[in-house]
């Protein structure tokens, strides 16, 4: 293709985006658009799959059978959502195995929130309430993303996730209406998870390298700061109902802006965790890598069996 032809295609592409048309896998797209999509979708998929680990740790310890099945179903959904997202990325010509490879080698990122330890039962409530709450805000915005397979995966995910946040909130509600010890457990969990949850929306807009292009291509529909503000505004009243205190002395309602002002996020901590030095980065990666490596012989066996069956069938026909 000549330079002019590419330029022409780019113009057509930009015009389609501007008209809010969806882009489908076989459509022509700029290489950078393809790459950005692969990066964003696989990162999202990795977050789902790594996100199974902190909650998965509590399945055997859930304090009631009712909580146990809800948690198990939720963690299972995360596997499903990872699968939907990997499939969406696969339409762009990258395999799930390649994406795993990028995750395991540390080349691909995932949401930093999962590098924090889930140490009490209240963390199951808080993860559902805050982490899923933040994720839902991100994901609802992504239902109208420009790449068709990603948008469709997000619609399905949003529909399925609607119980996740309620599941978490109900856990906390029970704790907050329980004994002093239970309420203290809830408060302690909020203290630990609040700031990392705010970091889930990524760096402030001015320092987010990909935001501008992602907004232009309608890969992202709202900026990090907009989404973060939305999260805070919707979460504060929920904390009030629980009767626990958000650990931010600067948090207060701004009547003029009709939104909450909030304190400074510790960005040094954010970057430290992103760069791999959070409390559980190593444990999470070790768990994923060993699941993959210990699964090797299983995947190979199933493949070999299928091929044998296939050959047998051909022989029977022949």
């Amino acid at each position: 293709m000549t330079e002019n032809e590419i330029k022409n295609l780019e113009e057509i592409f930009e015009a389609r985006i501007a008209r809010d048309e969806k882009i489908e896998p076989k459509d022509w797209m700029p290489e950078k658009y393809r790459k950005s999509n692969i990066r964003q979708i696989s990162q999202h998929a990795h977050s789902e799959v790594v996100g199974m680990l902190p909650e998965g740790n509590w399945i055997t310890r859930a304090p009631s059978l009712r909580r146990k099945v809800a948690l198990l179903a939720k963690v299972q959904d995360e596997a499903g959502h990872g699968l939907y997202l990997y499939s969406a990325a696969e339409t762009l010509g990258i395999s799930r195995e390649e994406m795993y490879e990028q995750l395991h080698s540390g080349k691909a990122k995932y949401s930093s929130i999962f590098n924090y330890p889930a140490v009490t039962w209240a963390d199951m409530g808080t993860i559902g309430w805050l982490v899923d709450g933040a994720a839902i805000i991100n994901q609802v915005a992504l239902c109208s993303t420009s790449f068709g397979p990603y948008a469709r995966a997000m619609v399905r995910i949003c529909k399925e996730e609607s119980f996740h946040q309620r599941q978490g909130y109900e856990i906390l509600l029970t704790l907050c209406r329980g004994t002093q010890e239970q309420k203290a457990m809830a408060q302690d969990a909020l203290n630990r998870w609040w700031w990392p949850s705010l970091m889930m929306f990524g760096p402030i807009d001015a320092e987010s390298p990909n935001t501008e292009q992602s907004m232009k291509w309608k890969l992202k529909r709202k900026t990090n700061d907009e989404l973060r503000q939305q999260f805070i505004d919707q979460t504060v009243p929920q904390a009030e109902i629980l009767g626990i205190t958000i650990p931010d002395p600067d948090l207060k309602w701004n009547e003029e802006k009709k939104q909450y002002d909030f304190g400074e996020i510790d960005w040094d901590e954010f970057w430290q965790v992103v760069k791999g030095h959070g409390p559980c980065n190593k444990e999470r990666m070790d768990a994923r890598v060993s699941a993959w490596e210990e699964g090797n012989w299983v995947r190979d066996a199933a493949m070999a069996y299928a091929e044998k069956q296939h050959d047998k069938k051909l022989k029977d026909v022949g």
């Binding site: 499903g80 699968l83 939907y84 499939s87 995966a153 069996y305 299928a306 296939h310």
Partner: peptide
Amino acid sequence: FGSLHATDAVMALENARDV
């Protein structure tokens, strides 16, 4: 509905049912 990985049709149906 979507996609998944499987080694053969039998497994694909089972996985589809579960996923």
